[in-house]
């Protein structure tokens, strides 16, 4: 699969897991210490990327309590833009909770849900136009 796919079993009930996904403070404890997020459908977020220079931004595409959190994922100033999604799922299992994580980039193009992601980017800003900035950076790389 072209995406990053992870899954983890956590020996705690889904409610104990979800509380770390359902608030900005909770997300700051594990996702990114500086994330700013408006945790409702269509709400926007921004956080520093893992490398310390890139910024990630996007919007909340889905929010199902103790079920799933889906964010559109846009890498700013990374040279090129990866319009993608971060999908986090929470499901009860006998031993507690299974948390699934799927992070895709262009893998989403043409597949179900992609249009929604694209619209989220287009709402974000014209500078986020899909593929446009991708190629600006790409030009630099290829030069």
């Amino acid at each position: 699969m072209p995406e990053v796919v992870r899954s983890m079993e956590i020996p705690a009930p889904p409610s104990s897991v979800w509380r770390w996904l359902s608030t900005q403070d909770g997300l700051r404890r594990w996702l990114s210490p500086d994330i700013e997020i408006d945790l409702r459908l269509g709400g926007s977020y921004r956080m520093p990327g893992g490398d310390g220079t890139t910024w990630i931004s996007g919007t909340v595409l889905e929010l199902v309590p103790e079920g799933r959190l889906v964010l559109s994922w846009l890498e700013e100033d990374a040279g090129w833009v990866h319009p993608g999604r971060l999908v986090i799922t929470v499901e009860p299992i006998a031993s507690g909770t299974r948390v699934g994580l799927v992070h895709d980039g262009f893998a989403g193009i043409g597949k179900a849900g992609w249009e929604q992601t694209m619209q989220a980017y287009e709402r974000g800003a014209d500078k986020h136009q899909v593929l446009r900035r991708l190629a600006d950076a790409v030009t630099t790389v290829a030069a």
Binding site: P2, V4, R6, M8, I10, V17, W30, H103
Partner: peptide, 24 residues
């Protein structure tokens, strides 16, 4: 997107481990 994915593999492994510790 190969190189991009490789970068995030490690990041998400770490993030999920943090989430598990918090929940447990």
């Amino acid at each position: 997107l190969g190189p991009w994915l490789a970068r995030y593999e490690a990041y998400w492994t770490g993030a999920l481990a943090r989430l598990r510790d918090l929940a447990v």
